[in-house]
Structures are given as C-alpha cells and as structure tokens.
C-alpha cells in the first residue's frame, strides 16, 4: 500500500483501533492482531489503590515496543483535564509525544466541545505534543485545528459508539479537500462498509473501537475492518468510474449477437 505518514513517521496500516470494551486482555490482543493496526489508543485512569497488586497491566499485553500507543483523553470535559491527562501519559510512556486529544461537551451524545479542544490543542502543541485531534465534522474548525499545528484531524462520522456509519459524507469531503494533513474518521463506524466508504471518500485512515469490540465475533470483525480499509484505500487510489444516471452501458460487445430465431 501507499505510505501512510503521521507526524513524519510511516505506518503499515491505515486502520487505528481502540483497546476498550473487550471481554478480557486476551480478546483485546487477538482482535488487535487480526486488525493489523499499528497505532492503538489507550486511556489513562487512576490506579486501584490497595486492590489486587498483581492485576495484569494493559502495557504488558500490548507492549510499546510492538505498537505505537496513542494515549487519549476520552472522558475529559475541559482543556485542563485533557492537558493533565496527556502530561501524565507522556510520563507513563517515557516521553512519547503522539497523542489523541478528545474533549467532550455532553455526556449523552459525547459530542466534542470544539472550543475547549482548540484551547487544549494550542497548549499541548506549545509543550511539543504531536496532537491527533478528535473533532466535529465542521470544516472551519477542522481547518483551524490544522493551522494551530495538529498532526491529524479526526472528525466524527457519527456519535462515538453509535455505529451509525457515515452520516455526512459531504462535510467529510470538504474537510478532506481542504486539509494538508491526514484526515481520519474517528467514531461512528459500525461495520466494514462504513470504513470502506470513509476511505473511498479520501480519508487517510479510520479509527474505531466499538465496531470491533461489540461485534458478535470481534476477531472476525477486526479482520473484516482490515480488509475494508485496504479495499477503500485501493478504490480511492484507483479512481472510481463516473456515475452515469439513466444511461446504461453494456459490458459485453453489441456486435455479433445471435439474431432471434425466425419462426
């Protein structure tokens, strides 16, 4: 496949996956292997105090030596919380600076708060973080996030965890056409065809979690998503035929067709 580059680094897969909502760490690891993803998101949370000290750790299952871990700020509702979370993440991951910024505005819809997102992005970029930013599908906000120095723009296709698919391909198209940095659909993908549609629109990648983790068979869905993203990318690069409404065109020669039998 053609190069997929984020912040100057090349990655072998355009599918990015989350690590939440799996039954156990074994399912997490197997699904991620099946997805072929090289960049995987993680969350940062308070550790349990005084409870099971031998509890397995996500970083032992998915070691930073094998994957690019993308700490995210899911669950943060203000720039301050998001910045604090990512400073801790950088310390936890030994100075790793590629992060996913997500500042939410509403617990029911998990819609992003773009004002707080921009505020957080400005500060994080000043602190030398490389910010992949979750945002709404507003093309003006997307452009602003690019201009302040984010390394990738990640608009929603529909609400986080909703699986409703690509609801506004037109807005995504405007964002893609305007952007000079990678655009990834983040949130809303429900099944393989959604991922393909996003890639056919010209997205550089797709980030998903629930579509795989909540499938009846997460491992098989992870494999389907890998193919869907590759298929969509290849179709985009190949360039689809023009749509010709109301003008059918036969695929077989029109010469040499047997005449009707004369009775």
């Amino acid at each position: 496949m053609d190069d997929f580059i984020i912040a100057g680094k090349r990655y072998a897969s355009r599918l990015l996956v989350g690590t939440g909502k799996y039954k156990d760490f074994n399912e997490t690891r197997t699904a991620i292997e099946a997805s072929g993803a090289r960049i995987i998101t993680i969350a940062i949370r308070r550790t349990n105090i005084g409870q099971n000290p031998n509890e397995p750790n996500l970083l032992d299952v998915l070691p930073p030596s094998q994957y690019t871990l993308l700490p995210n700020t899911a669950g943060c509702y203000s720039a301050d919380e998001a910045i604090r979370t990512l400073r801790l993440a950088r310390e936890l991951l030994d100075g790793h600076s590629l992060v996913k910024l997500e500042v939410l505005g509403d617990p029911r819809t998990l819609f992003p708060n773009v004002v707080e997102t921009i505020k957080a992005a400005e500060i994080l970029i000043r602190e030398n973080f490389q910010v992949m930013v979750y945002t709404s599908d507003d093309p003006i906000i997307a452009k602003q996030l690019e201009e302040i120095g984010c390394v990738a723009i990640m608009p929603l296709a529909s609400l986080i965890g909703s699986g409703m698919g690509i609801l506004n391909p037109w807005n995504l198209q405007i964002i893609i056409d305007n952007a000079r940095i990678p655009v990834l659909v983040d949130a809303g993908v429900g099944t393989a065809s959604d991922a393909t549609i996003a890639m056919e629109l010209g997205c550089d990648g797709v980030l998903m979690n629930t579509a795989i983790a909540n499938a009846q068979n997460p491992i098989l869905m992870a494999s389907a998503m890998r193919k869907a993203v590759e298929a969509g990318r290849e179709a985009y690069l190949a360039g689809r035929m023009a749509k010709k409404p109301y003008s059918a065109s036969p695929s077989s020669p029109t010469e040499g067709i047997l005449p009707a039998m004369i009775k």
Binding site: T19, K21, R45, L58, P71, N72, L88, N209
Partner: peptide, 10 residues
C-alpha cells in the same frame, strides 16, 4: 497525589 495507569480505551 494522582497515580495513573494505562487501561483499555478508544
């Protein structure tokens, strides 16, 4: 003090 770990998340 806040003490944090990495956990599964999207």
């Amino acid at each position: 003090l806040e003490i944090v770990v990495a956990v599964g998340g999207g």
